Simulated scan of single mutants.
Amino acid sequence: MAHPDGAASDVPIRDASIRLGQFLKLAGLIDSGADAKSVISDGLVRVNGDVETRRGRQLRGGDVVVFDGRGARVTAG
């Protein structure tokens, strides 16, 4: 279930983009890269409301990632 924008916390990134697996760790939604691979490949992560199964998916400012009922919005650092 996708969250409305208001339910996502803003997480600043250093560069113009970040890979989905890295962002999950940065946002504190998961603990490790191995966890990222597992939850993404199992179809448990949504980006902008759609299931995303590519760990290397490039995220940019404004993208919203939801996992396990928690959301995080990519913001430019």
Rank of each mutant, 00 (worst) to 15 (best):
R14W: 05
V65G: 15
M1A: 09
G77S: 11
A7Q: 13
I30G: 08
H3G: 11
A72E: 07
V64I: 15
D10V: 06
V39F: 08
V65M: 15
N48R: 09
D10K: 04
L29W: 02
H3I: 10
D15P: 08
D63Q: 02
R55Q: 13
T53Y: 04
L44R: 14
P12S: 13
S32Y: 01
A2Q: 13
Q22M: 07
R57A: 02
V45C: 10
A36Y: 06
L29C: 03
A2G: 06
M1K: 12
G21F: 11
D68E: 15
G33R: 00
G69E: 12
I40N: 08
G49V: 11
D68Q: 14
K37W: 04
L44F: 11
G43N: 02
I13Y: 02
S38V: 07
L20P: 01
F23D: 14
T75A: 14
M1G: 11
R14K: 12
V51E: 14
L59P: 01
N48M: 06
S17C: 09
A8I: 09
V39W: 07
V11D: 01
V66N: 11
D10M: 03
G43Y: 03
D42C: 08
T75R: 15
L29G: 03
D50T: 14
L20V: 01
R19F: 00
A27P: 01
R19H: 02
G28P: 03
G62W: 07
T75Q: 13
